[in-house]
């Protein structure tokens, strides 16, 4: 079965991205597919590569990047939500004349259409938020 997953809260403040990660991992390990995870609202902050959590804590960003590499996941950060909150990939940074970009490996920035498309193309849509 194909699961689409929405993460709509940022890391650490809310448990949403941890719950989504655990769900996606369990789904993949049990023979399901997760064609896409879509990060919206403050959820886009999960995709920054600049976070430095204490060493004895889980590293939410790195966990997602590792899971994406292992299972070829499509981790999509909403562009409109990302621009509001200062999340940029290389292309966007240069297009907007910004001096830096901050997207983690394994994530990409794209439009809200990717969320709707995920709803159309998957069998179940899961939302993790607050």
């Amino acid at each position: 079965m194909k699961f689409g997953v929405v993460v709509s809260e940022g890391p650490y403040t809310h448990q949403a991205s941890d719950s989504a990660y655990n769900f996606v991992k369990a789904a993949l390990e049990n023979g399901h597919e997760v064609p896409r995870v879509f990060f919206y609202h403050d959820g886009v902050n999960v995709g920054t590569r600049l976070s430095i959590p204490p060493q004895d804590e889980r590293n939410i960003q790195k966990n997602w990047t590792a899971l994406a590499a292992e299972h070829d996941l499509d981790l999509v950060i909403c562009i409109a939500a990302a621009q509001r909150r200062g999340l940029l990939d290389e292309n966007e940074a240069s297009r907007q004349g910004k001096d830096a970009n901050n997207i983690s490996e394994g994530f990409r920035i794209s439009g809200l259409g990717q969320l709707i498309e995920m709803g159309i193309q998957t069998d179940r849509l899961m939302t993790f938020g607050d």
């Binding site: 809200l112 259409g113 709707i116 498309e117 159309i120």
Partner: peptide, 19 residues
């Protein structure tokens, strides 16, 4: 909170998908 506004943005984009 921003949820209402960003929900509306999804609705507007979603309208193009003819669902």
């Amino acid at each position: 909170t921003i949820y209402a506004l960003e929900a509306l943005e999804v609705v507007l984009i979603g309208a193009a998908f003819d669902q």
